[in-house]
């Protein structure tokens, strides 16, 4: 029995130690995969400047980020969309007041396989493709071939913005493939000749081809001057007004240096 007690005490003290280690000078950031590259770059730079602060970073999606703030499992919750009224109600019912910080801008760019001849689609063509009404590339001026519609999971922030701005709240066809991340879309579009998908600006690469929307190229300049129609703010939410390390980290991202890192991560800086 005595030995049991010793083991138990050891276990408890170990657990206490472990948990205190997690919370001392540590910053937990969770949420949107779109913001992940930004958070990663800035966190690395911040930790280099402040060696005593440890930042742990994970993805999981915008809804997850906001949930983490409400549940108190993270200090900062990333969301590639603004908080929904339902989430605000839930937070208030738990006595939590989420505070948004807009840390960057992003454009959501339609992408196709690099062998696709299409260079430009209008907003209504995009909508009809995602409604499942346009099924063949021939109908939008491309070469004969079935369109493989690739979308994000319904709870993704990128999906939310796409649905609001492109679909005007109409439903994406159930025939659409759904992929759990931005990287997953890039992967699927790279390997599927007839595919169309959409990703945040930070995920564009040489393997996929971007499509202009209404003749406007999705890039930093066109997002800042407002001519590219599918753009959004990227947010970091905190539980109440941030203090200490959380505040310091957010100020760092919003500083000139932090915004430079935002640009390096492939997103659009605020200034």
């Amino acid at each position: 029995m005595n030995r049991f007690k010793i083991v138990l005490t050891a276990l408890i003290s170990f657990a206490v130690m472990a948990s205190s280690q997690v919370f001392a000078g540590d910053l937990v950031i969770k949420g949107s995969t779109t913001i992940l590259p930004i958070a990663q770059k800035t966190a690395e730079a911040y930790m280099a400047e402040h060696p005593d602060v440890k930042i742990s970073l994970s993805g999981g999606g915008s809804g997850n980020g906001i949930k983490a703030i409400v549940d108190g499992t993270a200090d900062i919750g990333n969301a590639s969309r603004f908080i929904k009224p339902k989430e605000v109600d839930l937070a208030h019912s738990k006595g939590v007041y989420p505070v948004p910080f807009r840390v960057a801008l992003d454009a959501i760019v339609p992408v196709v396989n690099k062998n696709n001849k299409i260079t430009d689609l209008s907003m209504s063509q995009l909508k009809n493709i995602y409604l499942g009404k346009i099924k063949n590339w021939k109908e939008v001026g491309g070469t004969e071939g079935k369109i493989v519609v690739i979308s994000r999971d319904s709870s993704s922030g990128t999906f939310g913005v796409w649905k609001e701005l492109v679909m005007k709240k109409a439903r994406v066809t159930p025939r659409a493939l759904t992929v759990p991340s931005n990287g997953g879309i890039v992967q699927a579009v790279t390997t599927t000749p007839g595919a169309i998908g959409y990703v945040g600006l930070g995920y564009l690469n040489q393997e996929i081809k971007t499509v202009n929307v209404d003749g406007v190229k999705g890039n930093e300049e066109n997002t800042l001057n407002g001519s590219f129609p599918i753009s959004r703010g990227l947010f970091m939410f905190t539980k109440g007004w941030p203090k200490g390390d959380t505040m310091a980290f957010l100020s760092f991202i919003l500083s000139k240096k932090g915004q430079q890192l935002v640009k390096e991560a492939g997103s659009i800086p605020l200034f």
């Binding site: 999981g60 999606g61 915008s62 809804g63 997850n64 906001i66 949930k67 409400v70 549940d71 929904k84 339902k86 989430e87 839930l90 999971d153 319904s154 709870s155 993704s156 759904t178 759990p180």
Partner: peptide, 13 residues
Amino acid sequence: AAEMAEAPFRSEH
């Protein structure tokens, strides 16, 4: 697996 992480806690979803 794909949706649980993002479904708001105790929502219908």
